[in-house]
Amino acid sequence: MKILVCISKTPDTTAKIAFTDNNTKFDVNGVQWIINPYDEWYALVRAIELKEADASTVIHLITVGGPDADPIIRKALALGGDEAIRVNAESSDSYFIAMQIAAIVKQGAYDLVLAGKETIDYNGSSIGGMISELSDYPYVALATKFELAGTKATITREIEGGEEVCEAALPLTVSCQKGMAEARIPNMRGIMAARTKPLKVVEPITADTLTRVAGFVLPPAKAGVKLVPADNVEELVRLLHEEAKAI
């Protein structure tokens, strides 16, 4: 079985969010970059677990980005996976990125494509669905469990106010969230092995961009907390009712 795991480079959760160039570009100054947590903890680790259960499984990682994404994809390879592909292009447009990944999906005839449920920078939740359509794969979004028996997958997915269990045959695309797997830390052996694993750099295919970031805006700063004494909870209720009009 061949699995393709989508990996995105995102700013660390604790990164300071600021913008430059008249609020049109994210300020990368001093930003620590990480593997998008949903791609790492859930999509990648679940793929590794599937390979541990069946050694014949092949895991490829894909990212769309410039050379500065290489340390991130190497870090992902240190966790697991056989080889990585980097499509040498940068874009904030999900469709453009999905077109690149879908081209790789078609070439590689992957049985399973795993993606995180969203990235923590653009919060689009879009890539999994778009790749599925462009590859004409069935798609299960927001999965919390994934089990495989032969070519039949049993998946638990979130639904509005609950969850459901469904079955589907491969090939398949799944977007992954909490529950799929437990986070892992790369060990020294993995880090050493990752250095020599193949990282193929391919040039992008021609694809349109459907959207563009016109600008960024920071939310207005909070006025500061209004503290109410612990022995006067009535005052808090009054403030919430009369001032905040929240209750």
Binding site: T13, I17, Y122, N123, F216, L218
Partner: peptide
């Protein structure tokens, strides 16, 4: 206008 950076900012997205 949409949420980005997990609620820490907004982006104005132009659709072409």
């Amino acid at each position: 206008r949409k949420n980005v950076f997990s609620g820490k900012a907004f982006a104005d997205i132009a659709v072409n």
